[in-house]
Lab assay of single mutants.
Amino acid sequence: MAAAAAAGAGPEMVRGQVFDVGPRYTNLSYIGEGAYGMVCSAYDNVNKVRVAIKKISPFEHQTYCQRTLREIKILLRFRHENIIGINDIIRAPTIEQMKDVYIVQDLMETDLYKLLKTQHLSNDHICYFLYQILRGLKYIHSANVLHRDLKPSNLLLNTTCDLKICDFGLARVADPDHDHTGFLTEYVATRWYRAPEIMLNSKGYTKSIDIWSVGCILAEMLSNRPIFPGKHYLDQLNHILGILGSPSQEDLNCIINLKARNYLLSLPHKNKVPWNRLFPNADSKALDLLDKMLTFNPHKRIEVEQALAHPYLEQYYDPSDEPIAEAPFKFDMELDDLPKEKLKELIFEETARFQPGYRS
């Protein structure tokens, strides 16, 4: 834990890192770190609560700039109880001085990944967590956004079992017609939660990839272990087919990539493993919904509104309290091709509203 900075004593240090967030945020305490930044909790002297502050230093890398800009653009436009918001952003007053960006968010005690390492969940908890994931996802999908990296560590939890989806750095506007060349190379989302079509096709992607990830998360809540822990690309596919069985001819016809289709045709026939054999203690309604989410063919996979209306979630289902976005989200430009200098300018502009004396 960093010592509390005395008023006016300059930035606090946390594990050798400068955290320049005073005077409003003090009493910093280390939480963890990701690929390009550290997260601390801090005391907000204005709202009198502890908050989470993520320090991001992305400006050396085009990919990190892209992810940072995506996350900020999306989260500043989203407003939903099951999606983490941005409360404040701290950065230098000029673009030349801006080396880091500090993002202030609600402090959540833990995440689903940490929880599943230590606790076996009751059916009631599984049901409530799944409902909140789908409630947040309904809003995301209504904005025409794909999260693309749903996994237990991106689901934040607090002691009252509130759940918030975080990390929109890989999110995209849904565009089933656009052929994202190089899709697989830039697709760094965790393999275990990846839909089979991501490994088999490169053309376009749809909201059904997020539903697949939610199915993987439900299976993990039922058993405290990942359902498809593939060691590499082909191993991942083999794990999936080992449980779902061989795809039907109709399902194979959806695979545009001939090499991928021929690979699947070359494999020995596998039978589907019954879900109640894998999860003998699970609620039968939970397994019915799991089956509809972990469907090989993305066109037959359940959609988020149908999933919310499934009998497993009937005690929570309330369409009048499951809000959607006001308007579909649009990125003005494809960020993939922009140089990091341009992305830095866009991050600077996007964060201006939090600067003292800002006038829109």
Rank of each mutant, 00 (worst) to 15 (best):
263 Y>K: 10
163 L>N: 06
24 R>C: 11
57 S>H: 13
172 R>E: 09
184 L>K: 05
185 T>Q: 09
53 I>C: 00
292 K>T: 10
107 L>K: 10
174 A>D: 06
16 G>F: 05
45 N>C: 13
149 D>Y: 13
89 I>Q: 01
210 D>L: 05
222 L>T: 05
243 I>Y: 02
70 R>H: 12
310 H>L: 15
14 V>R: 07
127 C>H: 02
55 K>W: 01
255 I>R: 04
71 E>I: 01
220 E>I: 07
200 L>W: 13
69 L>W: 00
234 L>A: 04
56 I>M: 14
42 A>T: 14
72 I>L: 12
7 A>P: 04
62 Q>L: 15
78 F>G: 08
208 S>I: 07
48 K>N: 15
268 P>S: 14
302 I>T: 00
95 I>H: 08
42 A>Y: 03
13 M>T: 06
118 T>S: 14
240 I>T: 00
352 A>V: 12
125 H>D: 11
107 L>T: 04
124 D>S: 09
2 A>H: 11
44 D>N: 13
158 N>A: 08
289 L>Y: 08
283 D>R: 10
324 I>Q: 06
128 Y>W: 14
10 G>R: 13
269 H>N: 15
352 A>L: 06
207 K>N: 13
245 G>Y: 04
254 C>A: 03
269 H>D: 10
270 K>N: 15
213 S>W: 04
27 N>Q: 00
52 A>W: 04
302 I>M: 02
53 I>N: 14
224 N>C: 08
72 I>Y: 01
83 I>A: 03
127 C>A: 12
33 E>T: 07
236 Q>L: 14
263 Y>I: 10
272 K>I: 15
70 R>L: 13
317 Y>H: 01
160 T>I: 11
120 H>V: 04
299 H>D: 11
249 Q>K: 15
74 I>V: 10
130 L>N: 06
155 L>C: 10
91 R>S: 15
7 A>R: 12
209 I>V: 06
275 W>H: 10
163 L>M: 12
309 A>K: 02
129 F>K: 08
359 R>A: 06
249 Q>L: 14
240 I>R: 00
111 D>H: 11
315 Q>M: 01
84 I>T: 00
222 L>H: 06
136 G>L: 08
268 P>W: 06
88 D>C: 02
85 G>Y: 06
329 F>Y: 14
22 G>M: 03
257 N>K: 14
251 D>N: 13
148 R>M: 03
241 L>I: 13
29 S>L: 00
257 N>R: 09
219 A>R: 10
33 E>W: 05
247 P>Y: 07
291 D>G: 05
55 K>I: 14
275 W>K: 06
250 E>W: 05
311 P>F: 10
214 V>M: 12
242 G>W: 00
64 Y>H: 15
218 L>W: 08
169 G>M: 09
189 A>I: 10
221 M>Q: 02
240 I>D: 05
253 N>Y: 14
234 L>P: 04
15 R>W: 14
72 I>T: 05
354 F>R: 11
233 Y>Q: 01
77 R>H: 04
277 R>S: 15
100 D>C: 13
359 R>Q: 11
85 G>K: 11
35 A>P: 07
244 L>P: 11
219 A>G: 12
77 R>K: 01
145 V>L: 13
128 Y>V: 05
90 I>R: 00
194 R>E: 13
202 S>R: 13
96 E>D: 13
136 G>Q: 03
314 E>N: 03
194 R>F: 04
242 G>P: 05
111 D>S: 02
354 F>I: 14
43 Y>R: 09
175 D>P: 07
69 L>Y: 04
188 V>K: 09
101 V>I: 12
119 Q>N: 09
203 K>H: 11
103 I>K: 14
56 I>A: 15
139 Y>K: 11
188 V>R: 13
141 H>T: 08
164 K>G: 09
196 P>E: 09
250 E>I: 01
276 N>H: 03
48 K>R: 12
265 L>Y: 09
288 D>N: 14
11 P>E: 09
178 H>L: 15
123 N>C: 03
304 V>M: 04
136 G>C: 12
112 L>I: 02
166 C>T: 08
106 D>T: 01
81 E>L: 08
50 R>K: 12
89 I>W: 11
264 L>S: 03
348 F>E: 08
10 G>E: 13
218 L>G: 07
179 D>M: 07
104 V>D: 14
55 K>P: 05
303 E>V: 13
352 A>M: 12
201 N>P: 07
289 L>A: 04
29 S>Y: 01
31 I>W: 13
327 A>M: 04
127 C>L: 10
259 K>F: 08
